[in-house]
Design a binder for these strands. Structure first.
Length: 808
RNA sequence: GCGGAUGUGGCGGAAUUGGCAGACGCGCUAGACUUAGGAUCUAGUGGGCUUCCCGUGCAGGUUCAAAUCCUGUCAUCCGCACCA
């Protein structure tokens, strides 16, 4: 008996599929099939190669793709390379090898590793973000945004990573540290290119409702966008002409404002200091500017300084002191707040610390207002101490106040977002050059579209200058150009785009990747997009996924695509970790490479084990030993095949037919629930059952094996093809339709009903499935016999499920 | 501090959504076959004082019946972190 030789079987089918891909656009009659677009988050081609964690996501997406294929779809399942970015550049700095060379090398290696997965990627669709034919369109999108006023230059203190020596978007600052390298982020005043993602804030928020995405990701994006309703209120400054506008979500508490706090960076902060407070104020502003974000965030205790100036509450004309404190953020709202210590925790803490008055304006019971021990932040209660507003419900006033204020002419109703515009320029080499020319006469002029791509020139040193200039600035012959509008000498923009630029739209390009005239043709966009299923890690919950949504909406607005959301369904697979949940990393030395496992156990075994380790959406600790189990399973399937095809065909028994339909049901429903780990255990259970049936009958029938091979094909494609061939077919197993089950055929003749006394199981009754309630109850009593000491006071029977006798 | 997820044998995890807790697999134990075993096969494997009882982080509750629902609480992980 030939044993299961994974190496030979897998090599054979690998080569066949290479020649004859199994994912046709049309069905056997030549009719065009409906498309299903199943997308992986494309990898950065790092020099470290793949580990078993990368495999997991790709296996999940491939299983799903093959399942869709068997359901009759034409599956769009592409792969590409997100190849711009810092590691290649840092490698270049260290080794003097051009990033394009090391990138190409890495892609070659990773592609080889990815091919080991045997996924049905369509390599004709491959894209690479560093390919000029690709980044031509990355630049083109930027030019369109520029033309629409969505890309603009701005000089202001940006997030600066002193290690990467580059500016960062807000989204890239995690806990005050650089998302890439973990270095604490500082502020630096620099001219930057910005993308006005805030113009899309409302749509980005609103359309989240339409997405079939994990709750968690929707929540994270919702919070990131951070929409709030409130009012801007104008406070005149006592004795001066300027006014200070504050933003508040609680205009209903306006009468309770007893002081005001400005952020140290507020434009009026320095000038508000009266002579006797000047020194202290200047010192505070300077100190705040020196501190990093991390530092500021670690403060528990509030700090602050009094300016000596007063603002006037526009409602009651009361003078309130103006303070500065760094708990007020310069770039949220107006950078200034009115403080109502009675009804805001932070204001309360500040007032307590600096001895400022506290006036309660909302009370649960207006007749018994006692001194507050802590801020009363709930907006439910009766308004007090508030002039003409007294007696109103604060719930009502909260929504009406903005309009009242607006009518009074002291402010206006406003909506605010946490979302900031996107710092889009990087002072680095290995990215798409920003296609803008600075002309002394015409200002910023985009590179004419027929001159795109604006190719990245070679440089002598990749090292960032650290002064805020990109290495490109050192290439005079590239920098110096002429203005496309007036022809005068002009200079090129030397900043490059962030890595997100290419990844924000790459999924559009796969389906029309050779198009030199358009980013994507209208036909291809309409036919293949949007993405039906997007699979990847949760680490991109805000960054990549938010940017991609923004890009898609913009491309919708300029008529490139006809949909507003790129990814209909999102699945986040959990991370594979090393022992004790430690993230796999080269530095920790706990990286498990798939290469040896594929060699020793086979691709099919590793694919199935990747799914069997645990629920796909949860993290899982890798344990090499477990793969033996799936390997044994595959061997059992193989032996079953050999036993059954070794001689006279076995006639199907009722038991085999029933088991077959039950299997189809089990696998299909678990697959639809994305419960891939239990799909595998379902197969194992079934195979154990079949093995014992086969022992009695000398094998199982052909149809059972055929169904098994089709069901198994998304998971263990090589073995499935081999089985299908051994069963006498010269077609591919993937030309089948996903099998259907028959409810009738699944039904057992006999059922087992647990018998309980007071909810504790005391026996199991095996009885004909057709038996009625009375029969079951009396047979049950009979079976329990002496255990049922007294006549039950109550008899519970849930059809097909359980019997419970309740005794006193 | 706020929000979310998770908590079940020695381990990874099942449990048709309120109906036999521990499927399936790893590991372990014993046996068989072997010159050999990190191969294969067979049997066993939650705990205990074993006709019975106890067991799903902990404490209560609802129910004929709870891992599942409710109340409270603890632990771990993740996200946000002065957003006015």
């Amino acid at each position: 008996m030939a044993s299961y030789n994974h190496a030979a079987i897998e090599k054979k089918w690998h080569d066949k599929w290479e020649l004859n891909p199994i994912n046709p656009k049309t069905d056997r009659e030549g009719h065009e099939k409906e498309k299903y677009y199943c997308l992986d988050m494309f990898p950065y081609p790092s020099g470290n190669g793949l580990h078993v964690g990368h495999w997991r996501g790709y296996v999940i997406s491939d299983v799903w793709s093959r399942y869709k294929l068997l359901q009759g779809y034409h599956v769009i399942h592409p792969m590409g390379w997100d190849a711009f970015g810092l590691p290649a550049e840092n490698y270049a700095i260290k080794m003097g090898i051009h990033p394009s060379v090391s990138t190409e090398e890495n892609i070659k290696n990773i592609k080889k590793q990815i091919k080991q997965i045997a996924a049905i990627y369509d390599w004709d669709m491959e894209v690479n973000t560093t390919d000029p034919g690709f980044y031509k369109w990355t630049q083109w999108i930027f030019v369109q945004m520029f033309k629409k006023g969505l890309a603009y230059e701005k000089e202001f203190p940006i997030n600066w990573c002193p290690s990467c020596k580059t500016g960062l978007a807000n989204e890239e600052v995690v806990d005050g540290k650089c998302e890439r390298c973990g270095t604490p982020v500082t502020k630096k005043n620099l001219r930057q290119w910005m993308l006005k993602i805030t113009a899309y804030a409302d749509r980005l928020l609103e359309d989240l409702k339409t997405l079939d995405w994990p709750e968690k990701v929707i929540k994270m994006q919702t919070d990131w966008i951070g929409k709030s309703y409130g009012a801007e209120v104008n406070f005149p400054i006592d004795g001066r002409d300027e006014i200070i506008t504050v933003y508040t979500t609680r205009p209903d508490t306006l009468y309770g404002a007893t002081f005001m706090v400005l952020s140290p960076e507020h434009e009026l902060s320095a000038s508000l200091a009266t002579p006797e407070h000047k020194a202290e104020v200047d010192e505070y502003i300077l100190a705040a500017s020196m501190r990093s974000n991390v530092d500021r965030m670690q403060d528990k205790e509030k700090t602050g300084v009094f300016t000596g100036s007063y603002a006037v509450n526009p409602l009651n004309q009361e003078k309130i002191p103006i303070w500065l404190s760094d708990y007020v953020l310069a770039d949220y709202g107006t950078g200034a707040i009115m403080c109502v210590p009675a009804h805001d925790e932070r204001d309360f803490a500040f007032a307590k610390k600096f001895g400022l008055p506290i006036v309660q304006v909302i009370a649960e019971d207006p007749d018994h207002v006692e001194e507050l021990k802590e801020a009363y932040t709930a907006a439910n209660g009766v308004v007090v101490n508030s002039g003409e507003w007294n007696g109103m419900r604060s719930e009502t006033l909260k929504t009406e106040a903005p309009h009242i204020i607006e009518k009074m002419g002291i402010g206006k109703a406003t909506v605010n977002f946490k979302l900031r515009d996107w710092v889009f320029s990087r002072q680095r080499y290995w990215g798409e050059p920003i296609p803008i020319i600075h002309c002394p006469h015409c200002g910023n002029v985009p590179v004419p579209e027929d001159q795109l791509p604006l190719e990245l020139p070679d440089v002598e040193s990749y090292e960032p200058t650290g002064t805020g200039e990109s290495p490109l600035a050192a290439i005079d012959e590239w920098v110096n150009t002429t203005c496309p509008v007036c022809g005068a000498p002009a200079k090129r923009e030397t900043n490059t785009m962030p890595q997100w630029a290419g990844s924000s739209w790459y999924f559009l390009r796969y389906v029309d990747n050779h198009n030199t005239e358009e980013l994507i043709s209208k036909e291809a966009a309409a036919k293949y997009l949007p993405v039906d299923m997007y699979i990847g890690g949760v680490e991109h919950a805000v960054l990549h996924l938010l940017y991609s949504r923004f890009y898609t909406k913009f491309l919708y607005d300029i008529g490139v695509v006809d949909f507003e959301e790129p990814f209909k369904k999102l699945f986040n697979q959990g991370m594979i970790t090393g022992k004790n949940g430690v993230k796999m990393s080269k530095s920790k030395g706990n990286v498990i490479s798939p290469d040896e496992l594929v060699r020793d156990y086979g691709c099919d075994a590793l694919r199935m084990y990747e799914l069997f380790v645990g629920p796909p959406q949860l993290d899982a600790e890798w344990d090499d030993r477990g793969i033996d189990g799936v390997r044994r399973f595959l061997t059992k399937v193989w032996n079953l095949l050999l036993d059954s095809t070794d001689g006279e065909p076995v006639i199907a028994t009722q038991e085999m037919i029933r088991a077959r339909h039950q299997l189809i049901y089990t696998i299909t429903s678990r697959l639809n629930d994305f419960s891939l780990n239990t799909v595998i255990s379902g197969f194992m259970e079934y195979t154990n059952q079949l093995a014992s049936i086969a022992k009695k009958s000398g094998g199982v029938d052909i149809e059972t094996l055929e169904v098994l091979s089709v069901l198994l094909s998304p998971f263990a494609p090589h073995l499935a093809e081999e089985m299908w061939e051994k069963l006498g077919h010269d077609t591919s197993v993937f030309e089948n339709q996903w099998p259907a089950y028959n409810e009738e055929a699944m039904k057992e003749d006999e059922i087992k009903i647990p018998l309980q006394i007071n909810g504790k199981t005391k026996g199991v009754l095996t009885i004909a499935a057709s038996a009625d309630k009375d029969t079951i109850l009396s047979k049950g009593k009979e079976l329990l016999g002496k255990k049922l000491e007294k006549e039950p006071v109550k008899e519970i029977y849930v059809p097909g499920k359980i019997v419970n006798f309740v005794v006193k």
